[in-house]
Design a protein around this nucleic acid. Sequence first.
DNA 1: CTAAACGCTGACGTTGGTGTCAAGGCAAGT
DNA 2: ACTTGCCTTGACACCAACGTCAGCGTTTAG
Lengths: 152, 152
Amino acid sequence: MRIGELAALAGTSPRALRHYEAQGLLTARRATNGYRDYGEHDLRLVAEIRSLLAIGFSLEDTRPFLDCLRAGHERGDTCPASVAVLHRKLAEIDGYLGRLQAVRAQLAEAIDRTTTYPNRAAAHPNRADYPEENPCPRQEPSATEAGPPTCC
Amino acid sequence: MRIGELAALAGTSPRALRHYEAQGLLTARRATNGYRDYGEHDLRLVAEIRSLLAIGFSLEDTRPFLDCLRAGHERGDTCPASVAVLHRKLAEIDGYLGRLQAVRAQLAEAIDRTTTYPNRAAAHPNRADYPEENPCPRQEPSATEAGPPTCC
DNA sequence: CTAAACGCTGACGTTGGTGTCAAGGCAAGT
DNA sequence: ACTTGCCTTGACACCAACGTCAGCGTTTAG
């Protein structure tokens, strides 16, 4: 199967597949004319990449999962290296969740204040409205329909 | 007060302040030698920008808050345009939270599976490990200590 | 036979908020 | 006078996962 077909089956683009190859995540046999030639197994690999990207993994983080699949496992998340990534990601997400919830609380309070005391000035003049805290993920992948500030 | 002093007081860099000016968020008088000259009020404006950036706002989203302060209000979040941004951000965050929690659940389940059934293959061979879903924020600002995948 | 549709490589563009460097002007201490 | 340190503008670098275009060869349908 050629790159366009694989891309279509995986719901992505030839450019993306070449990018994965450039990152060493995917390899392809070459036909005599130089065209990349993929097999069924490669569809599974690309599907793994896409599904992990969709939940906020970086390409680099998908590597252990692909190695796991190539090692013959039916799932990419059963190998030790994959599990390690899962744990790290879970910890990251918990961090994001905590910060996001803190920010959410700040915003909700600010909104509540303006709706409860409209046109009324607050107590501490020269203080910034929003202390510090510090919220969430940076650059987490996106859904194709979620708009610009897509996802983690 | 010159740019270096304001930057130090606000805990940021001259480069950042020039960037805010380039974006039309900050203005400065000029001394006869061409140096930017800031007043006390500008520190308040920069503090507002920094605190909003820290909780995941884009520079553009801080604009209504700055306008609000310049209009003479003691807080930047009391004007209608600011409140509108607050509502939008709250909605975004709720979206992120929902997706992050869904992803968290997926990861936790995957980890649980590997620890509960070690070395045991799963049921559906050719299915991707992680369906689809789709998680959270992209490119949310960062804390100075949170590391690479900083924050929302 | 020809044109459309595909494939190839290489390279630059995108997004945001800066960091960093270049090449110069200005101010103050010794 | 000279050095040091601040300031100025302008421009390129960064990160990630591609999009897009250029310039070229290949395959395939008509």
